[in-house]
């Protein structure tokens, strides 16, 4: 009986997701993107978030860094259910222009009913490639928290590499923005 309970608990935890520490220094994400971080970052893994990884400093309900590495043509973004996977709501295509990639990310970030307002979109060298940077505001539907976010990305060898960071606009976003800009500047793509 005890074994059964342990097994049930393990299955429950597995379904909820896992958390592990992100080591300071360079971290290889996927096969080709290296991200250099300092500070106390944690990597969360739970169903529905793939193909991104979620990293957080303050806890996932407060801030999150979405990490996309080597997203391939036709890959579905964050299928939150078998139905949305079947519908292919948001799919990366290798031919996407910058605006289309940002629109896709807007869709991903507002699929829960949250609002998304693009504040800035500009060219930006990311991972040594010709990329883009964008800023946005978002009202998170579930708790009405007003967030700010910044994203960076580039396509290389027909694969998408991107970082998107968001946190409450008061306190947390200003506290970490410069750290995120530093991380984005140091990204390398092999």
């Amino acid at each position: 009986m005890k074994n059964l309970l342990i097994l049930a608990l393990a299955m429950l935890l597995a379904a909820c997701g896992t958390v592990r520490k992100v080591e300071s220094g360079a971290n290889l994400v996927g096969e080709r993107m290296s991200i250099k971080v300092d500070g106390n970052w944690n990597h969360l893994d739970f169903p529905g978030i793939k193909p991104a990884q979620i990293w957080t400093m303050e806890g996932v309900t407060i801030d999150e860094l979405l990490v996309y590495s080597g997203i391939r043509d036709g890959q579905i973004m964050h299928p939150d259910s078998p139905a949305s996977e079947k519908r292919k709501d948001f799919v990366f295509r290798k031919t996407m222009q910058t605006e289309e990639i940002v629109s896709m990310l807007e869709g991903v970030l507002s699929r829960d009913g949250s609002t998304f307002k693009l504040r800035k979109l500009e060219p930006y060298p990311f991972g040594g490639r010709k990329g883009f940077r964008f800023e946005y505001e978002r009202v998170r539907k579930i708790d009405n928290v007003q967030m700010r976010g910044v994203g960076f990305g580039a396509i290389d060898k027909e694969e998408l590499f991107a970082l998107v960071y968001q946190a409450p606009r008061l306190t947390f976003f200003p506290r970490h923005q410069s750290r995120i800009e530093t991380i984005a500047k140091a990204v390398s793509i092999k």
């Binding site: 910058t98 605006e99 693009l118 504040r119 800035k120 979109l121 500009e122 060219p123 883009f132």
Partner: peptide, 9 residues
């Protein structure tokens, strides 16, 4: 427009 810098590029 928010994307003015990109369009200018």
């Amino acid at each position: 427009a928010p994307d003015a810098a990109l369009i200018q590029s």
